[in-house]
Amino acid sequence: MAYNEHLAERIQRVFREKHIVVEEKKMMGGCCFLMNDKMCLGLDTDKQSGKDRLMARIGPAAEAEALKRNGCRPMDFTGRPMKGYVFVDQEGFDMEEDLEYWVQKSIDFNPFAKSSKKK
């Protein structure tokens, strides 16, 4: 799997500090953190640049404001951006407070996110 394990550990630490239980799953070519059986946050390595990036599920309402932040752009795997998801490049999460911001944004949206898990 193509992702930075040190970054995964940093993300896990933020969730632990917030007393949030997540399931870590290798998927989408990287690693995703699931909260309440729903994708909350992920990380992978951008194949074009070779740099680490976050995949944050923040919801459509938070997207416009989030896109103003350093390193943030629409999440686009296929040429069509996914509503409510953003990619965050390294400069947007290098500082701990920036990483905490993205983790918290993802936590805040999780109760409103739809689960794709079949029951």
Rank of each mutant, 00 (worst) to 15 (best):
M1K: 11
A2I: 01
A2F: 07
A2Y: 07
A2D: 14
A2V: 02
E5G: 08
H6Y: 08
E9H: 12
R10Y: 07
I11Q: 02
R13M: 08
R13E: 13
F15T: 05
R16Y: 06
R16I: 01
R16N: 13
R16M: 07
E17S: 08
E17W: 01
K18D: 06
H19E: 14
I20L: 12
V22T: 15
E23A: 14
E23M: 10
E23V: 11
E24A: 14
E24F: 03
E24K: 15
K25C: 09
K26S: 13
M27K: 14
M27L: 15
M28A: 13
G30K: 06
C31V: 14
C31W: 04
N36T: 00
K38S: 01
K38H: 03
M39D: 07
M39A: 02
M39C: 01
C40S: 09
G42H: 05
D44I: 01
T45M: 00
T45S: 01
D46H: 04
D46Y: 00
K47A: 09
K47F: 00
Q48N: 08
Q48W: 00
G50F: 06
G50L: 04
G50V: 05
D52T: 03
L54Q: 06
A56E: 07
R57L: 13
I58R: 02
E63D: 02
E63V: 01
A66Y: 03
A66D: 05
K68H: 11
R69S: 14
N70K: 15
G71H: 09
G71Y: 10
G71Q: 10
R73W: 03
M75H: 14
M75R: 01
D76F: 07
D76V: 06
F77K: 15
F77S: 12
G79C: 10
G79T: 11
R80W: 04
R80K: 15
P81I: 12
P81W: 12
M82K: 13
M82A: 14
M82Y: 07
M82P: 01
M82H: 06
Y85K: 10
V86W: 04
V86D: 03
V88Y: 07
V88G: 07
D89T: 15
D89V: 03
D89Q: 14
Q90M: 10
E91I: 13
G92H: 09
M95I: 12
E96N: 12
D98R: 09
E100N: 12
E100I: 11
Y101V: 02
Y101W: 14
I107C: 07
I107A: 05
D108E: 15
P111W: 04
F112R: 11
F112S: 12
K114Y: 04
K114H: 11
K117H: 10
K117I: 11
K117F: 05
K118E: 09
K119M: 09
